[in-house]
């Protein structure tokens, strides 16, 4: 078995020094080693998007990345979105628009939308579809998620 490696990674603003097996996925590292289980695993082959996290600001699938790849980088997970129990604009929009049912895919959607709105606070419908098209939700039929995205855009505009 390959030798475990030492990594240093910043997750939601906290620096973690860890020794990990090279084969450990980023999702398992976050969920089981760092006790951040809000990142959910839906397919383990990079299709469904439930495990999406931000890696240096980019939305990536943590089920098909290895923890060792994140050495020296920054990760944001769903646990990093709210502050002191206050939901952020995107989370609040999902609650208001009933943008979730079982909620298992939701963290992945929230992280993808975070990246989208960080890059462009006023995306076109085409851009929204482009981003959401890689995330699978089995419950909602996407209509309320689309409404939540539009709600979040308005909330962020009003706040800026």
């Amino acid at each position: 078995m390959p030798t475990p490696r030492q990594i240093s990674v910043t997750v939601n603003g906290t620096v973690y020094e860890s020794t990990v097996e090279p084969r450990l996925t980023l999702a398992d590292f976050l969920r089981h080693e760092l006790a951040l289980p809000g990142t959910h695993v839906g397919c383990e082959h990079g299709v469904c998007g439930a495990c999406t996290v931000l890696w240096n600001g980019r939305a990536v699938r943590s089920c098909i990345m290895l923890a060792v790849q994140t050495d020296g980088t920054e990760i944001t997970t769903v646990e990093g979105l709210s502050k002191d129990g206050e939901l952020n604009a995107i989370q609040q929009a999902f609650v208001e628009e009933h943008g979730l049912q079982c909620g298992f895919c939701t963290p992945g959607f929230l992280m993808t939308i975070t990246e989208m709105l960080d890059r462009n606070p006023d995306p076109s419908d085409e851009e929204i579809y482009d981003y959401l098209g890689g995330q699978i939700c089995r419950c909602t039929g996407y209509q309320s998620i689309l409404a939540a995205v539009r709600n979040a855009i308005e909330k962020k505009k009003a706040a800026s």
């Binding site: 289980p37 997970t77 646990e79 709210s82 939901l87 989370q91 009933h98 909620g103 963290p107």
Partner: peptide, 9 residues
């Protein structure tokens, strides 16, 4: 149910 769910909790 939703505040917990959107927080990954």
């Amino acid at each position: 149910e939703d505040r917990q769910l959107v927080s990954g909790k």
